[in-house]
Simulated assay, not measured.
Amino acid sequence: MHVSRSDDEMYAVHLMPMCDDDQIRVELHREKGLAVIEPGTGRPVRASGIQAAPAQTSWPQLSTPAAETAESQGEEIRMIAEMIPESFSHVVLVTGSRSWNDEQGMLSTFNDAWRDWGAESITRPVLISGHCPEGADAMAERLWRAAGFEIRTFPADWSAHRKRAGFQRNQEMVDAAQVFRETGAQVLCTAFLDLCRKPGCPQQGREQLMPHTPGHFSHGTIHCRDRARAAGIETATVIHPSLAPF
């Protein structure tokens, strides 16, 4: 880890890599809160819970039910093929920890996407989700359903792929997002990071957050995030507020 301090009280902390070629730099400004800077781009990564949500949001609060979600991967693949001619205007791929419980942080992330895209251009948004019954997937699906938006789910097939099921599902979600992007949709991957809480995890001694501080992010979320970035998909990384400022 390298820590530097400038005259304006800014601390730049270079943390341990999250994967082979990935680092996160944290900038802590006195009286300004926390900003996490994506390496290579200089763009800020969102740190949930650090900055107050904007007073005005564009995330709709509707009650119209969303289209029913498919319950098998085979159905999803067929549905994608059928939807290509009409396409979606905007796609959000959600990945996140099973322990994610910060709804305000997730809403703020979706609001940021709406502002970046321009609400008037969002004619048919869709959520791509791994359909985990708890944590980030379940929360995102609930929020999108309440807003009246469509959802496409990719539940992991644990019986067929066993330990690799989650990673296989992640790749299928990224592949689907790429298909939609090729039809002209704007695509964003939102990764909601919390600590790995797997009992007896063989990597529990990793110091991914800070040196001499054991802890690392959930494996599935990091994998999906990395696959999305490798595919050239814009990615918003949101860190659970309990972990900031690390």
Rank of each mutant, 00 (worst) to 15 (best):
Met210Ser: 07
Gly33Glu: 01
Glu76Met: 15
Cys224Leu: 04
Gly49Lys: 02
Gln186Thr: 05
His161Tyr: 10
Ala230Pro: 15
Asn111His: 14
Val187Ser: 01
Ala47Cys: 08
Leu188Pro: 06
Phe149Pro: 14
Val179Arg: 14
Pro199Arg: 02
Asp116Gly: 10
Ala146Asn: 09
Asp175Trp: 08
His212Phe: 10
Gly148Arg: 06
Asp194Asn: 12
Ala53Asn: 09
Leu188Glu: 07
Leu193Pro: 01
Phe167Leu: 08
Arg164Tyr: 06
Met16Phe: 12
Pro241Met: 01
Arg162Val: 13
Pro39His: 06
Val126Met: 11
Thr221Met: 04
Gln171Met: 09
Gly200Leu: 04
Gln61Phe: 11
Ile80Tyr: 03
Thr221Asp: 00
Arg43Gly: 00
Cys189Ala: 10
His161Lys: 15
Ala81Thr: 12
Glu207Asp: 11
Pro44Glu: 03
Gln61Arg: 14
Gly118Leu: 11
Gln73Cys: 09
Thr221Lys: 04
Leu93Asp: 01
Arg169Val: 10
Glu31Ser: 08
Asp157Ile: 01
Val26Met: 15
Glu207Lys: 09
His216Gln: 07
Ile37Met: 08
Phe217Gly: 02
Arg25Lys: 10
Ala136His: 13
Pro155Trp: 03
Trp59Val: 15
Ala136Leu: 12
Arg197Phe: 01
Cys189Gly: 11
Val26His: 00
Ala70Tyr: 06
Leu188Ile: 13
Arg115Asp: 12
Pro245Ala: 11
Ser6Phe: 09
Pro65His: 01
Gly118Glu: 09
Thr69Leu: 04
His90Val: 14
Lys32Gln: 07
Phe246Ala: 08
Arg152Glu: 13
Cys19Trp: 03
Asp22Arg: 14
Leu243Met: 09
Asp7Ile: 11
Gly33Tyr: 05
Leu193Cys: 04
Trp114Lys: 12
Ala228Ile: 12
Ala81Pro: 08
Thr153Ser: 12
Gly33Cys: 05
Leu34His: 00
Phe149Thr: 03
Pro44Trp: 05
Trp100Asp: 06
Val238Ala: 12
Arg206Val: 02
Ile122Gly: 00
Lys163Ile: 02
Ala81Trp: 10
Ala244Gln: 04
Gln51Pro: 00
Gly42Met: 02
Ser242Asn: 13
Pro211His: 06
Arg115Gly: 06
Gln56Arg: 09
Asp20Val: 14
Val36Gln: 01
Gln23Arg: 15
Met173Cys: 14
